[in-house]
C-alpha cells in the first residue's frame, strides 16, 4: 500500500501562493532536477560580492545573421518568457538582419566554414568544405534547413519574433549596426522597441544573465 501524502507536492510556479491554513497544509519545498540537491546557499558568493536578488532577468545578444544562428536566441528567449522571466534581445552586427524587414524572411544557411554539417539522410557521408562554395549550395542547404524546421513545426524567424513580442519580450536594435547599415526606423521589424547605444545596453542588462549568441 502506497503511503498517501497529506501535504500536496506543488510545482514551483515562482509566484505561487502557499495554500493557507484554512485550505490544505503548506506545500513542501520542491526541487526540480536542475536545482541541485544541496542546501540553499546564503546570498553572496565566496568572493564576497553581493548576489543580485531581484527577479530573474535574461538578455540575449543576437550577433549573427545566418538562419541557423538566428534560432538559439529566439528559442531560448521564448522559453525564458514562458518561465516568467523578464527577457530582452539585443540585435547587433549581423544579428541585425533578424529584425531588418528586407532580410529577416530570407536568412540563409551555408555549409561553408561549418564542419558540423551532415546530411541527415546519410550522416556518415563526408561533405568536403570545398562543396560549400559550389554555386547553389547555400540555397540548397538553406532550403534543406527550412524543411527540417518546418517538419519540427518550428516557426519562421518573423513568427518567432511575433510570439516573443506577444509574450512580453523586449527587442532592441544596436545603434552602431543601425548606423553602419544606413537604416531608417521604417526598415525595422515593428516589434523593435528602440535603437539603443552600447551604454544603454549596459544599463539595460544590469542584474541580468547575459547570453551571447
Amino acid at each position: 500500500m502506497t503511503e498517501i501524502l497529506e501535504t500536496p507536492i506543488i510545482p514551483d510556479f515562482g509566484d505561487t501562493k502557499k495554500p493557507d491554513a484554512a485550505g490544505a497544509a503548506p506545500s513542501r519545498p520542491v526541487r526540480s532536477k536542475f536545482q541541485g540537491g544541496g542546501e540553499p546557499q546564503p546570498a553572496g558568493d565566496q568572493a564576497g560580492a553581493p548576489a543580485y536578488s531581484g527577479p530573474r532577468k535574461m538578455v540575449f545578444i543576437a550577433s549573427k545573421g545566418n538562419l541557423d544562428m538566428a534560432y538559439p536566441a529566439l528559442i531560448m528567449a521564448n522559453a525564458a518568457l514562458g518561465e516568467g522571466i523578464e527577457t530582452h534581445i539585443f540585435f547587433t552586427f549581423w544579428g541585425f538582419d533578424l529584425v531588418t524587414e528586407r532580410y529577416m524572411d530570407d536568412l540563409k544557411f551555408t555549409m561553408a566554414g561549418n564542419t558540423a554539417m551532415h546530411m541527415p539522410q546519410a550522416p556518415t557521408m563526408p561533405l568536403p568544405q570545398i562543396m560549400g562554395v559550389v554555386p547553389g549550395m547555400t540555397k540548397f542547404a538553406t532550403n534543406m534547413m527550412k524543411k527540417q524546421l518546418d517538419d519540427l513545426e518550428i516557426p519562421s524567424v518573423r513568427e518567432m519574433l511575433d510570439i516573443i513580442v506577444a509574450s512580453g519580450g523586449h527587442l532592441w536594435g544596436c545603434k552602431l549596426s543601425f548606423d553602419m547599415n544606413g537604416l531608417a526606423r521604417t526598415d525595422l521589424y515593428d516589434g523593435v522597441e528602440d535603437v539603443i547605444s552600447a551604454t544603454d545596453f549596459i544599463e539595460l542588462s544590469e542584474g541580468a544573465q547575459v547570453i551571447f549568441v
Binding site: 510545482p11 510556479f13 514562458g82 509574450s167
Partner: peptide, 27 residues
C-alpha cells in the same frame, strides 16, 4: 506547448499570459 495552444487551439498569446500569469505553460 504555448505555441501549439495558440497555433492549433487558436488562443491569443497575450491572453494566455493574462489568464495564467508568470509561467503559463506550467500552470
Amino acid at each position: 506547448t504555448l505555441r501549439r495552444v495558440t497555433a492549433v487551439g487558436g488562443f491569443d498569446m497575450k491572453e494566455l499570459f493574462r489568464l495564467f500569469p508568470g509561467k503559463p505553460a506550467k500552470k
